[in-house]
Nucleic acid binder design. Structure first.
Length: 332
DNA sequence: CGCATTTGACCCGCGC
DNA sequence: GCGCGGGTCAAATGCG
């Protein structure tokens, strides 16, 4: 599969939302935007023609670099996809009865899978009392594959006053644990899908350390049942405690990371499969352009939210201007 | 009363 | 071997 053809991996940054119809002209708009900014700047600071030329040159250089990075990213995606399909083929060739990663996936339990004799995992492995090392490695590796292949992340911006850790995504979840992790003072909540007892999907929800109004939901596994509720009904469903109403669509104040647009910005770090992205975005089928927009918005959002990036960007721009005009001071 | 949530204890992998 | 940290369990608690 050539995902790179489906996902635009361009790193052309856009600050603020850009509609899907604008995508084709996004890069020219960026340049126009930058040009407009410099025009504004020029009103305040006298800029020589050669400085403008230098800036334009710099812009072109950065654009070329962007193209190069895009090409590299595309190559990486292609290599990853090729490797992934090879691994999958190898697994199937080695163990034809291996369940498909899309079905019958067991959660990433380590404790009970190895020691326990009860439960679905034990039932699957009950006939393997004389398993060899090779077989064990085969058992372990598909599990790793499953885990890495089915983890997806969804970022949701919520009300700053909202302290709940509920991310409504159309499924019914049962909270089974909460933990404060080392790298983040905000507690992480652990959920299991409670709609179907056999559903192996788990969800971790945690606020980001940088922006505590942003919830990051990490999904593990895939649902083996359809989505529970239509989007519009979720708020009234009463499935989740009312104190944590972080609805996707029906609460007007629940801002997405990048508004306007869908309330959930999917950031699938482990899969480049577009289908998964659409799945993490609430089973709503999205055209490729929308996926691209989501990805690009996510990238831009991540970069613009990163204080180090914005600082470095500001320093680079101001440094460039000062470097071009070292003797001239900013006009009063 | 039944179900979901809370929360401290426990388990296990990993790094030193 | 030991400590740390993430993940899970299960008794206690709350709520409708």
């Amino acid at each position: 599969m050539d995902y790179s053809s489906l996902i635009n991996t361009s790193l052309e940054l856009k600050i603020g939302p850009v509609r899907a119809s604008d995508e084709a002209s996004a890069a020219p708009k960026l340049r126009t935007l930058a040009a407009n900014d410099f025009m504004e700047l020029e009103k305040k600071v006298p800029v020589k023609q050669e400085e403008k030329n230098a800036l334009v040159e710099e812009l072109n250089r950065v654009s070329a670099e962007n193209k190069k990075l895009t090409a590299m990213l595309t190559t990486v995606c292609e290599n990853y996809n090729a490797l992934r399909s090879q691994v999958m083929e190898y697994m199937r060739a080695k163990n034809p009865e291996m369940p498909s990663p899309d079905t019958n996936s067991s959660p990433s339990r380590k404790r009970k899978c190895e020691s326990g004799n009860n439960g679905a995992a034990a039932a699957n492995g009950s006939s393997e009392s004389s398993s060899t090392d090779e077989e064990e490695s085969l058992i372990k590796r598909p599990r790793e594959e499953k885990i890495t292949a089915k983890i997806s992340r969804v970022c949701v911006r919520t009300e700053p006053s909202d302290t709940g850790l509920i991310v409504k995504d159309g499924y019914q979840w049962r909270k089974y644990g909460q933990k404060v992790t080392r790298d983040n003072p905000c507690p992480r909540a652990y959920f299991k899908c409670s709609f179907a007892p056999s559903c192996p999907v788990k969800k971790k929800v945690q606020r980001t350390a940088e922006d505590q109004s942003v919830l990051v939901a990490t999904y593990e596994g895939e649902h083996n049942h359809p989505v529970l509720l239509p989007q519009a009904d979720q708020d009234a469903s009463g499935l989740s405690p009312s104190r944590s109403a972080t609805s996707f669509g029906s609460v007007p104040h629940s801002n997405p990371l990048t508004s306007p647009g869908p309330s959930v910005a999917a950031l699938d770090m482990t899969k480049s499969k577009p289908a998964t992205v659409s799945k993490t975005t609430l089973q709503r089928p999205k055209p490729d352009t929308e996926l691209q927009r989501l990805l690009v918005e996510q990238m831009a959002s991540s970069l613009t939210k990163d204080p180090t990036f914005t600082t470095a960007l500001a320093a680079a721009i101001s440094g460039r201007i000062l470097h071009q005009n070292p003797t001239k001071e900013w006009s009063k």
